[in-house]
């Protein structure tokens, strides 16, 4: 039973810490740009404000527009609860393997894009079109980089993959390095971060994610925003799980869990700091350079696969 309890705590932690993670990135960015920033808790304050505000809906919006935030939020939340953060072997991790995880995120995206198209303005359609286009290119790259790992672990089950990585003696694995680079590139794209999309933009012509949720307000907007924060958290945790799981708790003992929690937060902070640095240093890509960026990620992931076969699989 304790593992179920830990599972629930872990899922709640992911959901609740997600706004903090977003706040952390924007604070880091602010510091890097010599600003003070709004503070770590600002996303939380935003969400709280949105939850109590009145909802205003576009006049043509249908029931789909009103259900979409719930679908998007729940699909993302379920996906997040499947990802192990501290304890490697959680009961829910059987629910979905990595591929199912990607599909859950795709479900969220599907409804997000439909909601964008529902209001019948140019922005929504534009956002939906771009989001689906780029997601279509990002998904193979992401799966390819996951394949590299699952081929060596002979599994797509996250728990088994993590255990495999922890138990193999540390060695230089060029394939893993490739896979990780590809995964990082995809994660940036999937989360609508610079250089692919700018989460803080207010210039309609360049935005993707914001364009789709332009018409949302109040609790609907809060759910949408929260879902995208969870997604960032999820990707960061997933990258930690897949590529640097060392220190995660194999057994549910308090000491191991405490160490795992501490390490997880530390790794998370490291990744998010790297994101903030990248966002500060890089400029946003032109829209039609994004496909090249994503196909680059795919090529790198495929190179990872090839070098796995060439160098590591053994003849």
């Amino acid at each position: 039973m304790s593992s179920i309890l830990i599972q629930i705590i872990q899922a709640l932690l992911l959901l609740l810490l997600a706004p903090l993670a977003t706040g952390f990135v924007s604070t880091c960015k602010a510091r890097l740009q010599n600003r003070r920033g709004a503070g770590l808790l600002q996303p939380w304050r935003n969400l709280r404000k949105l939850f109590v505000k009145e909802v205003v809906i576009a006049s043509h919006a249908s029931w789909l527009f009103r259900t979409a935030p719930y679908v998007v939020f729940t699909a993302t939340a379920i996906a997040a609860s499947v990802v192990p953060a501290m304890l490697v072997d959680t009961p829910l991790s059987l629910t979905a393997d990595v591929i199912a995880l990607v599909a859950l995120l795709a479900l969220a995206r599907f409804f997000l894009a439909l909601a964008g198209m529902d209001i019948g303005t140019a922005f929504g359609g534009m956002g939906a079109s771009r989001e689906m286009t780029f997601a279509a290119l990002a998904e193979p790259a992401m799966l390819m980089s996951i394949f590299v790992l699952s081929l060596s672990a002979h599994s797509t089950n996250l728990t088994t993959m993590i255990t495999h990585t922890i138990h193999t003696s540390f060695a230089l694995h060029p394939s893993l390095a490739f896979a990780m680079v590809a995964m990082l590139m995809v994660a940036v794209a999937e989360n609508g971060r610079i250089p692919v999309d700018n989460p803080t933009t207010h210039l309609e012509l360049t935005m993707i994610h914001e364009a789709m949720i332009l018409e949302y307000s109040g609790r609907h907007l809060a759910l949408m925003e929260w879902a995208s924060m969870i997604k960032l958290m999820l990707f960061a945790t997933l990258i930690i799980d897949l590529f640097m799981p060392w220190g995660m708790a194999m057994q549910a003992t308090p000491a191991a869990l405490a160490i795992a929690l501490g390490l997880w937060l530390l790794k998370l902070a490291g990744l998010l700091l790297a994101l903030a640095l990248a966002e500060t240093a890089l400029a946003k890509l032109r829209l039609f350079e994004v496909p090249e960026y994503l196909s680059g990620a795919f090529i790198i992931a495929f190179l990872g696969l090839l070098s796995y076969y060439m160098l590591e699989a053994g003849v």
Partner: peptide, 29 residues
């Protein structure tokens, strides 16, 4: 695995395709 990646690409493109189909036919004005 390459064919699996092609399958992933096809799946993702299919999602885009049916967002278009549903969105254009049933949603909007």
């Amino acid at each position: 695995p390459f064919s699996a990646a092609m399958l992933a690409l096809a799946g993702a493109l299919a999602a885009a395709c049916f967002v278009k189909a549903f969105g254009v036919v049933f949603l909007g004005l």
